[in-house]
Design a protein around this nucleic acid. Structure first.
Lengths: 134, 134, 134, 134
DNA sequence: GTGGTCTAGACCACG
DNA sequence: GTGGTCTAGACCACC
């Protein structure tokens, strides 16, 4: 699996990792039983402080997505798919909810909103389609 | 205009104020030339430290939404509507964009997304509609 | 004499009045013995709080530019021209000094500075020339 | 880079810091990618409250001169030189413009003005020249 | 009365 | 260690 980290975005780095792992599990890119890269390895790959990686793994562990395999690293739990799908759904729903709230308070019409939504969807469907192939 | 502040939310208090003012201007609830409540007044109303209010007003001033009338208070700039509408649009578009990105990366189908969007929209349209009448 | 007041500039209103009176005396537009408009009158003309006018007159009095004619208003002192010319000179010199300081600290070359100075001078010489005729 | 702060000047302390940073970038004393001293450090060096420093950094951030490196401090943005040069130019131009306006309104002749300008320039060129060597 | 600046000190999230 | 937010309280200039 590939991570794309934006070190200066508003979402903290460790949180970006947590989310991307969960989304990958929900999508089926990561499957139960699969080993995660070691903290040290991922730290090098992403050029990120090891503590940050460790914190992400720790949170994923307490969210029951990963489990430690004593002495050999972290594995994806076999029962984590449903949890991750739920997490994905509420993540997306919350974001949509907040966006709609602001839009309506700001006087945006439902029609404008639908346009915006469909435009973004069309655009991203293409982009991510491409990325998946590459 | 009415503010609704969540002091424990992830968005800082002063940012919540900034956004709500901009949205109110975009919506037409606040119009050019209108006086804002004084720092001290709003501070009392919202039970928030005056400095925090002042910081919000300050940011709104540097974003060219408010301007100070020396010794009399802050007014909404007459030329701020367009800016606020733009701000609203990019605020909403960004949120939608992020939501879609997460959804697609997480393997959610466009159909599921549309359902989710329409459900949330229907729900909130009702809610905000009610609030406007009351 | 005519005042041009910018109510939202960084220079306080009362200070703008003080300066313009001094400059007018230095220029000869106001001469010794001449009556100033009453606080009330000027307040109406400029749409400015009377207290602000009063404060300006007060400062001009303590700077020995105006003197009260008991019960009849303020007059320009006959001995104020030199003082006003000096005031003008130090006002201008200070501004030039600060501008140069910033320019040099910021790495602007003397040549660039001269260009800027001459351009502004040419431009304003024309403008103020026009205004005097009108 | 060195700051010289006048805590009693008319320009607020945080503004003095903002300007000096911008001028330093325009001059090339600060270059893109360079780390700024930490808020706490600079606070100690200048004997100024950390909040005041933070406010200056915050303004520099919203002016796109600095950017935060999460957990590591503030850096000069690589694309800030042009912005800072522009800022310097308009800062200086405004000051010159105001000085000229007052001078002309006050009846100062262009010849007198040029003399004044050249005198100040000669004087300061020497002074700053010295400072650079030391 | 208004906004603006500054200080002091606390707490938090992040790396 | 870093910056960011918030509170509290003081002082100032301006109108």
């Amino acid at each position: 699996m590939y991570f794309s980290i934006d070190p200066n975005g508003e979402v903290p780095i460790y949180e970006q990792i947590v989310r991307q792992v969960k989304l990958a599990v929900a999508d089926g890119v990561l499957v139960g039983g699969q080993m995660m890269p070691s903290v040290r390895q991922l730290s090098k790959d992403l050029a990120i402080n090891p503590n940050t990686i460790a914190r992400a793994y720790q949170e994923l562990q307490s969210d029951l997505v990963l489990e430690p395999l004593r002495g050999r690293g972290m594995v994806v739990r076999r029962d984590s798919v449903n949890r991750c799908t739920k997490a994905r759904n509420s993540l997306v729903a919350d974001a949509v909810r907040r966006a709609l709230a602001d839009a309506l308070v700001g006087g945006m019409s439902p029609a404008e909103l639908r346009d915006l939504f469909e435009n973004e969807l069309a655009q991203q469907a293409v982009t991510t389609g491409k990325e998946k192939k590459s």
